[in-house]
Measured scan of single mutants.
Amino acid sequence: MIINNLKLIREKKKISQSELAALLESSRQTINGIEKNKYNPSLQLALKIAYYLNTPLEDIFQWQ
Rank of each mutant, 00 (worst) to 15 (best):
Leu24Asp: 00
Leu53Glu: 01
Ile15Phe: 08
Asp59Gln: 13
Glu58His: 13
Pro56Asp: 09
Gln29Pro: 06
Leu24Thr: 15
Thr55Ala: 08
Leu20Glu: 00
Glu19Ser: 11
Lys12Met: 13
Tyr52Cys: 11
Pro41Gly: 03
Ala46Ser: 05
Gln64His: 13
Ala46Gly: 07
Lys14Leu: 10
Gln62His: 07
Ala22Gly: 11
Leu47Lys: 13
Ser18Val: 11
Arg10Val: 05
Phe61Pro: 00
Arg28Asn: 08
Gln29Leu: 10
Ile34Lys: 01
Ser26Thr: 15
Ala21Gln: 02
Asn4Leu: 09
Gln29Glu: 15
Ile15Ala: 02
Leu43Gln: 08
Leu45Gln: 06
Gln62Tyr: 07
Ile31Arg: 01
Asn40Arg: 14
Lys14Cys: 11
Lys48Leu: 09
Trp63Pro: 03
Gln44Pro: 10
Glu19Trp: 08
Leu53Gly: 01
Tyr39Gly: 05
Leu6Met: 10
Leu20Asn: 02
Glu25Ser: 13
Gln17Arg: 07
Gln64Trp: 07
Lys12Thr: 12
Leu45Met: 12
Thr55Glu: 11
Ser27Ala: 07
Glu35Met: 03
Ala46Phe: 03
Ala21Trp: 03
Leu47Cys: 15
Ile2Thr: 09
Ser18Gln: 13
Lys12Pro: 01
Leu8Phe: 10
Asn5Ile: 07
Leu47His: 10
Gln64Arg: 12
Leu6Ile: 03
Met1Ala: 06
Ser18Leu: 11
Asn37Lys: 08
Asn40Ser: 15
Ile15Cys: 06
Glu19Thr: 12
Ile2Leu: 13
Lys7Leu: 08
Ile49Thr: 00
Ile3Ser: 08
Gln44Asn: 11
Arg28Pro: 15
Leu47Val: 12
Lys7Met: 08
Gln64Val: 12
Ser16Asn: 06
Gln44Ser: 13
Gln17Ile: 14
Phe61Asp: 00
Ser18Lys: 14
Gly33Pro: 01
Trp63Gly: 03
Ser26Glu: 15
Leu43Pro: 09
Gln29Ser: 14
Leu24Ala: 12
Lys38Asp: 11
Ile9Thr: 05
Lys7Ser: 08
Glu19Phe: 10
Pro41Ala: 04
Ala50Ser: 10
Asn40Ile: 15
Ser27Cys: 08
Asn54Val: 06
Asn37Leu: 06
Lys14Ser: 10
Leu47Met: 13
Tyr51Trp: 11
Leu20Cys: 05
Asn4Trp: 06
Arg10Ala: 04
Pro56Leu: 06
Asn5Pro: 00
Ser26His: 09
Thr55Val: 12
